[in-house]
Measured scan of single mutants.
Amino acid sequence: TDVTFHVNGRNLHLKGADEELLRRIEELIRRGADIEELEKAVKEWEK
């Protein structure tokens, strides 16, 4: 799945995201995470 999140005026584009990653990103956004936290979560998922 390709999806782009718009967070605090910045874009986080995910290519090939699975349901697990999407749920994790949505949860972080609900908690008020900043873009750096979201990018870190994506990097951890990519490993």
Rank of each mutant, 00 (worst) to 15 (best):
H13T: 15
D34F: 08
G16D: 11
H6V: 15
W45K: 04
L21Y: 01
G32F: 04
R30H: 11
I35N: 02
I35E: 01
K43T: 10
K40R: 13
D2P: 02
E26S: 10
D18F: 02
R10N: 15
I35T: 02
W45S: 07
L28H: 04
L22S: 02
K15N: 06
L12A: 00
H13I: 14
E26W: 11
E27Q: 09
L28I: 03
K43E: 13
D18C: 03
V42E: 01
F5L: 10
D34V: 08
A41F: 15
E46Q: 11
N8Q: 05
R31I: 10
D34H: 08
V42C: 03
E20A: 14
E46V: 11
D34C: 04
W45C: 02
E37D: 12
D34M: 09
E37V: 11
K15T: 09
R24L: 14
A41S: 08
I25L: 13
E27S: 12
V7F: 05
L12I: 09
R10F: 15
K40Q: 13
A17Y: 06
K47R: 12
T1G: 09
L28E: 04
L22C: 05
E36S: 06
V7I: 10
N11D: 15
A33H: 10
L14M: 04
R10L: 14
I29Y: 05
G32I: 01
V3Y: 10
V7E: 02
E20I: 11
K43R: 12
N11R: 09
T1S: 11
G9K: 01
A17P: 09
D34Y: 07
L38S: 00
G16C: 05
G9T: 02
E36F: 07
E37M: 13
V42K: 03
T1H: 14
K40M: 13
E37I: 11
E26Y: 10
A17L: 05
R30I: 12
D2G: 04
N8K: 05
R10D: 14
L21N: 01
R24A: 10
E27A: 10
K40C: 05
L12K: 00
E46C: 07
K40N: 14
V3G: 02
R31V: 09
E39I: 14
A41V: 11
L22M: 07
K47A: 10
N8S: 05
R23N: 10
F5M: 04
K15A: 06
L12Q: 00
E19H: 12
A33E: 08
L38N: 00
L28F: 05
K47V: 12
N8T: 02
A41K: 07
R10I: 15
E19K: 14
V42G: 01
R23Q: 10
L22E: 01
D34L: 08
R24I: 12
I25H: 00
W45Q: 05
R24T: 13
D18K: 06
L14D: 00
E26G: 10
